[in-house]
Amino acid sequence: MAYWLFKSEPNTWSWDQQVAKGEAGEQWDGVRNYQARNNMRKMALGDKGFFYHSINEKRIVGIVEVCAEAHPDTTDDTGKWECVDIKAVEPVKNPITLEDCKNHPTLSEMILVKNSRLSVQPVSDEEWAIICEMVGVKP
């Protein structure tokens, strides 16, 4: 299993909206960055991810799971872009911020810290375990 981080502006797509989609989940559409698209192409069913509210909040608020592998993004007319579907698994008990990650000795090398603009990014096994402990969920 691989781990990921999905960033969203809460006024565009929030954790509450993701939760409301239930077991069916929702496509992670609208991504127009080649690196983020290529990350989604690597995802497999059951991969887990952090749901991250960007902009003002800058914090991890939930855990999601990939429920459909890469497929054409229905919001794209060009045929270049793909997306995965994700479903909410659980909220985190203690949301952690970008600052928390920057200040943690191991997490300071995370892609979230080094390339915070990338909307879909991998998370290492070690980073996943550390963050799960910090946010109060089982890895």
Results as ranks from 00 to 15, higher is better:
1 M>Y: 06
1 M>N: 05
3 Y>G: 05
3 Y>N: 06
5 L>F: 01
5 L>T: 06
6 F>I: 08
9 E>D: 15
10 P>F: 03
10 P>V: 13
10 P>I: 13
13 W>H: 10
14 S>G: 12
16 D>Y: 02
20 A>G: 14
20 A>K: 08
24 A>K: 01
24 A>N: 04
24 A>T: 04
24 A>I: 04
26 E>I: 13
26 E>H: 08
28 W>M: 14
30 G>S: 01
30 G>W: 03
30 G>P: 04
32 R>M: 10
32 R>F: 15
34 Y>D: 10
35 Q>P: 03
35 Q>M: 11
38 N>A: 07
39 N>K: 01
39 N>D: 09
44 A>C: 07
46 G>V: 10
46 G>W: 04
47 D>Q: 03
47 D>M: 03
47 D>S: 07
48 K>S: 07
49 G>T: 06
49 G>D: 07
49 G>I: 11
49 G>Q: 01
49 G>Y: 06
51 F>V: 10
52 Y>Q: 12
52 Y>F: 08
53 H>C: 08
53 H>F: 03
54 S>A: 09
54 S>F: 07
54 S>G: 12
55 I>N: 13
58 K>I: 07
58 K>Y: 00
59 R>I: 00
60 I>L: 15
61 V>T: 14
61 V>P: 07
61 V>A: 14
61 V>E: 07
62 G>P: 05
62 G>M: 12
64 V>D: 09
64 V>T: 11
64 V>E: 12
64 V>C: 13
67 C>M: 07
68 A>Y: 02
68 A>D: 06
68 A>H: 05
69 E>Y: 05
69 E>C: 07
71 H>Y: 08
72 P>F: 01
72 P>S: 11
73 D>P: 02
73 D>F: 03
74 T>G: 13
76 D>P: 04
78 T>Y: 02
78 T>S: 15
78 T>E: 04
79 G>V: 01
79 G>N: 02
80 K>C: 08
81 W>A: 12
82 E>V: 09
83 C>R: 01
85 D>Y: 02
89 V>M: 14
89 V>P: 01
89 V>Y: 00
90 E>P: 09
91 P>E: 15
91 P>N: 09
95 P>C: 05
95 P>M: 05
96 I>T: 02
96 I>Y: 00
97 T>Q: 09
97 T>S: 10
99 E>M: 06
99 E>W: 02
100 D>N: 13
101 C>N: 03
102 K>V: 14
103 N>F: 02
103 N>Q: 14
104 H>I: 06
104 H>A: 09
104 H>G: 12
105 P>S: 13
105 P>Q: 06
106 T>W: 03
107 L>N: 09
107 L>A: 03
107 L>H: 02
109 E>F: 07
110 M>D: 15
113 V>K: 01
113 V>S: 00
113 V>T: 09
113 V>R: 02
114 K>G: 15
114 K>S: 00
115 N>T: 08
116 S>E: 09
117 R>Q: 14
117 R>K: 11
118 L>I: 13
119 S>A: 15
119 S>D: 06
121 Q>G: 11
122 P>S: 13
124 S>C: 12
126 E>C: 07
127 E>G: 09
127 E>F: 01
129 A>W: 00
130 I>T: 11
132 C>V: 08
133 E>L: 01
133 E>T: 11
134 M>A: 14
135 V>T: 05
137 V>Y: 04
138 K>L: 15
139 P>A: 12
